[in-house]
Every structure is written in structure tokens, then in C-alpha cells.
Amino acid sequence: YREISVLGMSLGSWVAGLIAAHEPAVSKASLFLTAGSLADMVWTGRATRSIRDSLEPAIALADLRRVWGPLNLENFAHKLARPDLALQVVFATRDKVVLPELTKRFIEKLHQAGAKPSVLKLNCGHYSLATPPYILFAGWSLKRFLSRA
């Protein structure tokens, strides 16, 4: 294959981001509804409240960040900023699962590392991204991103 692309949504975006950071054969990565820190997403997300509740008695957020550091995409921003990787980030401004502040912080880390991601902000929530018109905007944006030379 001459070109390999990865796409991930929500938790899948971490998997796609980790693959893109570690596999130089990946030339394009599109991360939908992502943030850099899995620990922060679990700690703050509405849909992950039960996970936080089970972890909180045993571990503090700062320790969880350290333990889950190998899963934190912010720690790999420099690898995601490599010149031969095109990067797209799609985020929902009303997301209660992956809070927009976490996505913005991740995008800022990418910029600090020298990446120039294509960013699409949609005025929807985590689950409403799957409904029209948001899914149409996201799909069209992905098509344009993948079609670029």
C-alpha cells in the first residue's frame, strides 16, 4: 500500500492516535471526539462516571494520569507532529463525554509540538454527532481530508 490512514471515534480515537504516533507507515489520522488524556476524560465524562466512582476510592486523578501515561496522546504530540503525518481532529462543542476543554488542550499540545491539524468544531454533543446535519458535515470533512494529496 502507498498510503495508510486510520480513523477512530471516541475511545477508538485513542487507539487510532496511538497507532499513528507509533507506526510511521500511517500517513493520515482522523480523530473524532478525542482528547489527549484518557485519565481526564474518564474523570470528567458523564458517560464514564461509574468508572470514576470505582477508581476514586483507590487512586487520585494525578496518580491515574501517571499510571495511564502510556495511553495519553498528549505524551505523543511530538510523534503526531511528524511532517509526513496529516492529522484531523473533529470535536463536539457540547460534548459531555469528552469535554471540549480536553480536546482543546490536546489540540494546543499538538500545536506546541509543531503539528498543524485540520480541526472541525461542530455545535453538537457526543452522541448527536451521529445525527444529521452533524454527521454530514463530519463525513464531508473526512472525505476532503482523505482526498488531499
Rank of each mutant, 00 (worst) to 15 (best):
R2T: 12
R2Y: 12
E3P: 02
S5I: 02
V6G: 06
V6S: 07
V6F: 11
V6N: 05
L7I: 15
M9G: 13
M9F: 02
S10F: 09
S13K: 03
W14Q: 13
W14S: 09
V15T: 15
G17V: 08
I19M: 11
A21Q: 03
A21S: 11
S27Y: 01
K28M: 02
L31Q: 02
L31E: 08
F32I: 14
F32H: 06
F32E: 03
T34I: 13
T34C: 11
S37Q: 00
S37D: 11
L38F: 13
D40K: 07
M41W: 05
T44V: 02
G45L: 04
T48H: 09
S50L: 13
I51F: 11
E56R: 08
A60K: 07
D63A: 14
L64I: 07
R65C: 05
R66A: 14
W68V: 06
W68E: 09
G69C: 01
P70D: 11
L73F: 08
L73A: 08
A77W: 00
L80T: 00
L85W: 13
L85E: 04
A86R: 15
A86F: 04
V89G: 08
V89H: 04
V90L: 10
F91E: 08
D95V: 01
K96H: 09
K96D: 15
L102Q: 11
T103V: 10
F106W: 11
E108H: 09
E108A: 14
K109Q: 12
L110E: 07
L110A: 08
A113T: 02
G114A: 07
A115C: 12
A115K: 05
A115D: 03
S118Q: 12
S118P: 00
V119C: 09
K121W: 02
C124G: 09
H126N: 14
H126Q: 13
S128D: 07
L129K: 01
A130S: 14
A130H: 06
T131M: 13
P133G: 13
L136Q: 12
L136W: 06
G139F: 01
G139T: 05
S141G: 12
S141F: 04
K143M: 07
R144Q: 15
L146R: 05
L146E: 07
